[in-house]
Design a binder for these strands. Structure first.
Lengths: 219, 219
DNA sequence: ACTTAATAACTGACCGGGCGGTTATTTAAT
DNA sequence: ATTAAATAACCGCCCGGTCAGTTATTAAGT
């Protein structure tokens, strides 16, 4: 399935074609798919190359190392998504609760259900072996995302929409089930299927907002 | 730090001693420590042996393979803990909310703060490469644990203590932040420290119980 | 147009170190 | 003397990374 079926250029008498511009993206895509499936260490560069429809040597024309490919996957695929989210938050008009509900469900649709959902598990799994990458991810993705959520939560607290509490901890609570589900999906799902994820997230949101909307929270 | 400091038997004129009974436990302990630190693939059997104060060959007198060591870690260390929890649930007298609160905090003290907390991350990380182990873990740990929580939740629902809802999903919600925190501790914690975990769990419990204690939950 | 030279994309055989696993040998214990 | 525990040298495979050579593409020359 899909073996160098890129566009229609497998045609002709050539064994291969020169496609300098298209290669990096194809490599990144192939790598993400395999990383998601097998993890970083267990992914063989030969397999990445084969899936991208090139030879292993060609990988090294575009990336310095296996780790560089990993980094490129994270860098090129996540940035745009986050930017879109930040924009959405700025422009939103409505209650903060509705905004957060939309963000959670939107994240699941755009990230959770795509192969991007493999990245959290990848980062967690390989953080010990690639600390620089973990650091980069925390700075550029985790903290940046949490900042957005904290911002919305605090806006809601000031508006009297939510009970006042530690917004950073509350933000963690809000995304914990999401991230957890993404990680699960790429690990234990075959033996313990969550089933209807949006329903799960709905329950989470109901419990969460009712929980922070009124007087149960200390302090 | 702690290099073959098992009891005092590095002493004397002997290069080593025969300690057939003590070896397996020491190997398991050493393996868990290294697995927690480096992950499964990146852990070298030479290092496990060194940490256990023996040679690599000796490992194979007690275990068939690296994977068998992994399996032994999970099997021998988790069973007893779970059994204790099940007993506690049976014998408990008090509100179901209090029981769950105690279980959560107790879990963090007994598991979260010990090196056992590394196991969830290990399983998640290696599930792709060791599916049999993942399957075993889901059956013997995940489902068994969730069963206990579901039981308590349903008991509370029937007693009118909690709102009726899908207890299986609610159980997932309850332990998601716990498990997430354990995984975090062994991955991104150096760059994104959670800080006071009991405080985090308290906020979670407050939000959760207030959320399911009254009318916000659909259905 | 046609040939030839120059360039850059791409290939795939190869290498070397690392590591899981084995075994011939040594040593403690009885 | 015999047995069993432990060792350490050893094997062989695997895979990330390299590089000498091959092929598509482009440019120059006639």
């Amino acid at each position: 399935m899909m073996l160098s079926t890129h566009k229609s250029e497998a045609r002709g008498p050539y064994r291969w074609r020169r496609r300098k511009e298209a290669r990096p993206e194809e490599i990144i895509e192939a790598a993400l798919a395999l990383f998601a499936e097998k993890g970083f260490s267990a992914t063989r560069l030969d397999d990445v190359a084969k899936r991208a429809g090139i030879s292993k040597g060609t990988l090294y024309l575009y990336f310095d190392s296996k780790e560089a490919i990993f980094r490129a996957v994270v860098e090129t695929l996540i940035g745009p998504k986050l930017q879109a989210i930040e924009k959405r938050v700025d422009e939103f008009e409505g209650t903060n609760q509705d905004l957060l509900r939309q963000l959670v469900h939107g994240w699941w649709q755009n990230v959770g259900e795509s192969s991007l959902s493999a990245i959290p598990k990848l980062i967690v799994s390989e953080s010990g072996n690639f600390p620089e990458l973990a650091e980069y991810f925390v700075k550029q993705v985790v903290k940046r995302s949490r900042k957005v959520i904290v911002h919305v939560l605090e806006r809601g607290m000031e508006a009297g929409e939510f009970k006042k509490c530690d917004a950073k901890l509350a933000a963690r609570l809000l995304y914990a089930p999401m991230v957890q589900t993404a990680i699960w999906k790429h690990s234990l799902n075959p033996w313990d299927d969550i089933g209807d994820v949006p329903a799960y997230l709905d329950l989470h949101l109901d419990v969460f907002f009712h929980g922070i909307a009124s007087g149960a929270v200390k302090k």
